[in-house]
Amino acid sequence: MMLMAVAAAMSIAGCSTTSGSGAGAEGYDGQGVVTGIDSDGAMTVGDPNEVQTYNGPESLREKNTIYFNFDSDQILDAYVGTMQSHAQFLRNNPDAKIVIEGHTDERGTPEYNIALGERRARSVARYMQNLGVDVGQLSIVSYGEEKPADPTHSEAAWSKNRRAVINY
């Protein structure tokens, strides 16, 4: 499971709109996603106390991200080692499954970037298959430019955001 509930203390600036738990009715949307009504009348989806954590082998924690060149889905030589490590783990642990998230920088349009992010994630998945990983252990999702690792608007940020992230 990719998600773990932890007590996330979040500071909310000034009088910004709040707040997940507490206000209004809560329920589920039938797909296991928490829904509610915020104090300003907006519908809410998701649990703000749920945070995404890395659930893979500890030895690969620092090696779960593969970076790409601009507008490219080609796996660079620098990341072949990373791919081989994950592939080996997956071959040795046939019950383990990974989700490959594809991400892009903000240049170009959000819709085009969603497609590009998918291509990056697929590129990683294909490479894993070539390394002998069973297709049933692999799933992909593209977030395009929507979840930047670095939210600033600079070349340095863009190079950190063009990435595929492997999680278990």
Binding site: D40, M43, T44, V45, E50, Y143, G144, E146
Partner: peptide
């Protein structure tokens, strides 16, 4: 006016 608020991206 806020219509929907989510923990995950909206597009």
């Amino acid at each position: 006016t806020a219509v929907l608020k989510s923990t995950q991206p909206l597009m």
